[in-house]
Structure formats: structure tokens, C-alpha cells
């Protein structure tokens, strides 16, 4: 396989960033580590939401359902089933995916904009239900017992490093997973659905099955991220676990601002989001107003977001997805 110059630059750049990030615990202080962990899981959530909305036409405002489920499952599995944290973490994801199955069966009865609100209702049902479970603290929530926290690793800094690497690994797995998915037959099918669902069905794409699988898969990964989030926070309440503001509004803003329908967009959006937050978080609700205005402005003026703005000709790419037939490519170059 030939590697072009652009490819080698790209690979070089990515390797430097990756090595730098994976060495995080050796160069970053605690505050930076915390910030990076948060950035990792927000980016992972953003990529997953983008896979739903940007690539599959499934616009959900109820992904907090799966963040919360993952979080609560982690607490349940460690506290009541006595499982070690490192096992409970992936298991929480898998169980969330299983619970997403009936959820999807209900939500898929609604289409388009009503699907969005339907997912939100379902997330509320989960929130209100967990508030009724007294063994998990009911409405006021519960903390992860210290012996479980201690069992993860020796000492706080070792535990924090471990959390950091898990967050980084999940984020990379999500990005690479979506990239691989987009380069596969599934990606082609999803693209066809996004462009024209009826036509996709008529050429043999099994649209409902494909969308269903994507929804459940995304839910499972979202659940695992939720487990990680509340492993880091060490305390869970229904309000925090199923927060529409944290796990839907902010995630959607990140994707919209960065650029929906690309892998690079959410990365850009996530960086911008954390930079803005550093400067504007003191403004309180004005910070949310500013984010809202930017998002609405982008949707109205350049729906492909900042990445689309920077990259009008689609010449730049960190993650090449587009398929080009070599023959077509040469034809294109010949015609002026």
C-alpha cells in the first residue's frame, strides 16, 4: 500500500498527540487530569451522538437515559453484586445496551422530530424511576463506598491515573470504532439512509434494522461512559445522572458548533467548548446563552459547523472516509 505525503503528515501528527495524551499522568497536574478526563468523555459522548444524528438520522435528546443507566448500573454491580470495578465498567455498558433494546422498541414507534421528544420522555421515566429506588438513595442519591473506591488501585494518584487511561481508551475506541464503521459497508448504508431513506430501502439497505443496531450500540457505549463518569464523580443522584443539560444540551452544542456529520467536527467543538468554558464559566447562565446563540447561528448560517467552515472544499481531513475510485479521480483532474 502506498502512503502519500498527506497521509504521513497526518499519521505523524496523530502519533505525537496520542503519545502526548497517553503520557498524561506523567506530565499533567491533578486539575489538568480532571479536565482532560472530562474532555475525553464529552468528546466520546459527542462522537456517539454525532453517529446517531449526523450519520444515521436518529436525532435523540434522550441520551442522558443511557449515561444515567450506566452510572447506576456501575454502582449497583459494585455495591450489591460485589463485582470488581474494572469488570463492572464494561458490564454496565453491556447491560445498558440490553436495556436500550426495549427502549428502542418504544422510541422507534415515533419518527422524525417526535422521536427526539420521545427519547426525552423515556429518559425522564428512567430518572423518575431511579428516584423511587430507596436502596440506591432515592431522590437524594448515593455515594460509592470508600472500600470499593480503594479496591480499584493503591492510592489516589494511581486511581486517578487508571481513570485517566480508561477515559482515554474509551474515547479512542469510540473514535476509531466510528471511523472503521464509516469505512465499512455499514457506513455506506448509513450514508444512504441519511441522504434518502426511501431510496436506501429500495436498494436493499435494511434501514430499520441498521438504525436499531446503531441505536443500541451507541447506548451501550454511552452507558459505559456513564459508568466512567460516575466512577470519577464517586456520587450519583437521579438529577445528575439523567441531566438533560449535561448529557444532551452540552453534547449537542459541541457537535453542532464543531460540525455535525464529520469525525473532526466534534473534536474541534470539544476543544472550543473547553476553551470557552475556561473563560466564560463565571458568567453562569450567560455562558449557556452564548453557547446557545452560537449553536443557533451555526445551524442557520453554516449547518456543517466550524469544521465545515474551515474546510469548505473538503480537502483537509484527519480521518479519510470518502471512497474515491482511482478512475474517477483521474477523470476529475482532467476536466477543468
Amino acid at each position: 500500500m502506498q502512503i502519500s505525503r498527506a497521509d504521513s503528515v497526518r499519521i505523524g501528527l496523530l502519533s505525537v498527540v496520542l503519545i502526548g495524551l497517553s503520557m498524561g499522568p506523567y506530565w499533567a497536574d491533578r486539575g489538568t487530569m480532571r479536565l482532560l478526563i472530562e474532555a475525553f468523555y464529552f468528546l466520546a459522548l459527542a462522537q456517539l451522538w454525532n453517529l446517531l444524528a449526523g450519520y444515521s438520522g436518529l436525532i435523540s435528546v434522550g441520551q442522558q437515559a443511557f449515561v444515567g443507566l450506566g452510572g447506576y448500573l456501575l454502582f449497583t454491580l459494585t455495591m450489591f453484586a460485589g463485582l470488581p470495578v474494572l469488570l463492572a465498567l464494561p458490564l454496565a455498558g453491556i447491560l445498558t445496551g440490553i436495556l436500550a433494546w426495549p427502549t428502542a422498541l418504544v422510541a422507534f414507534r415515533l419518527s422524525g422530530p417526535y422521536f427526539a421528544i420521545g427519547t426525552w420522555v423515556i429518559a425522564e421515566v428512567y430518572r423518575l424511576s431511579f428516584a423511587q429506588i430507596s436502596s440506591l438513595g432515592g431522590g437524594s442519591g448515593i455515594s460509592l463506598p470508600t472500600d470499593i473506591v480503594r479496591s480499584m488501585a493503591d492510592g489516589r494518584s494511581a486511581r486517578e491515573s487508571l481513570t485517566y487511561w480508561i477515559a482515554l481508551a474509551i474515547m479512542l475506541a469510540v473514535i476509531l470504532g466510528i471511523w472503521a464503521l464509516m469505512r465499512s459497508r455499514v457506513g455506506l448504508g448509513l450514508g444512504a439512509i441519511r441522504d434518502n431513506e426511501e431510496a436506501a430501502t429500495s436498494i436493499g439497505v435494511r434501514t430499520t434494522r441498521l438504525k436499531f443496531s446503531v441505536f443500541v450500540g451507541v447506548a451501550a457505549m454511552t452507558g459505559m461512559i456513564g459508568a466512567l463518569i460516575f466512577l470519577q464523580k464517586l456520587r450519583i443522584t437521579p438529577e445528575a445522572a439523567f441531566s438533560v443539560n449535561d448529557w444532551s444540551v452540552l453534547v449537542i452544542f459541541i457537535v453542532v458548533i464543531g460540525g455535525i456529520g464529520s469525525l473532526e467536527g466534534p473534536i474541534l467543538g470539544c476543544i472550543l467548548f473547553f476553551v470557552l468554558r475556561e473563560f466564560l464559566a463565571d458568567l453562569g447562565s450567560w455562558y449557556m446563552i452564548i453557547l446557545g446563540v452560537i449553536s443557533v447561528g451555526i445551524m442557520l448560517l453554516e449547518p456543517r459547523g466550524l469544521w465545515g467552515m474551515l474546510n469548505r472544499k473538503r480537502s483537509l481531513t484527519l480521518f479519510p472516509i470518502a471512497r474515491r475510485s482511482p478512475k474517477l479521480k483521474s477523470l476529475n483532474q482532467d476536466t477543468p
Binding site: V256, L291, V293
Partner: peptide, 8 residues
Amino acid sequence: LVTFGFSV
């Protein structure tokens, strides 16, 4: 997305 933004 636009009306969701308006909501916030």
C-alpha cells in the same frame, strides 16, 4: 437543533 437552542 435550532429550536432546541432557543429552548436553552
